[in-house]
């Protein structure tokens, strides 16, 4: 069970959060201009790295805000959390 530092509420138990997959996948502004392959790239392709990964998390049972996390999937260490719209802090 992680202890996650919500950028708004502070340290909370993992049970208050839900995970939302890979971060920084921006929804295309003009989907109609895209080929099937380009759209599929946005829709389906996710990295799922062993190692340091950027992820989206939601403080679902707290402030309900989405934020990003730098997490090492090999040892579950959370290196940093940062707000939506912010650049990932360098590891």
């Amino acid at each position: 069970m992680f202890l996650i530092n919500c950028p708004y509420c502070g340290e909370r138990d993992q049970s208050e959060f839900s995970a939302g997959g890979e971060a920084h996948i921006i929804r295309p502004k003009q989907p109609t201009e895209l080929s099937d392959d380009q759209w599929a790239e946005f829709l389906f392709m996710r990295k799922n790295i062993k190692g340091v990964q950027l992820e989206r998390w939601n403080h679902a049972h707290g402030c309900r805000k989405w934020f990003n996390m730098v997490r090492d999937t090999s040892n579950d260490k959370i290196h940093a959390v940062y707000k939506m719209g912010e650049k990932p802090p360098i590891k």
Partner: peptide, 9 residues
């Protein structure tokens, strides 16, 4: 605090 008690918000 907003949290869970017995899994209830």
């Amino acid at each position: 605090a907003q949290t869970l008690v017995n899994h209830i918000d």
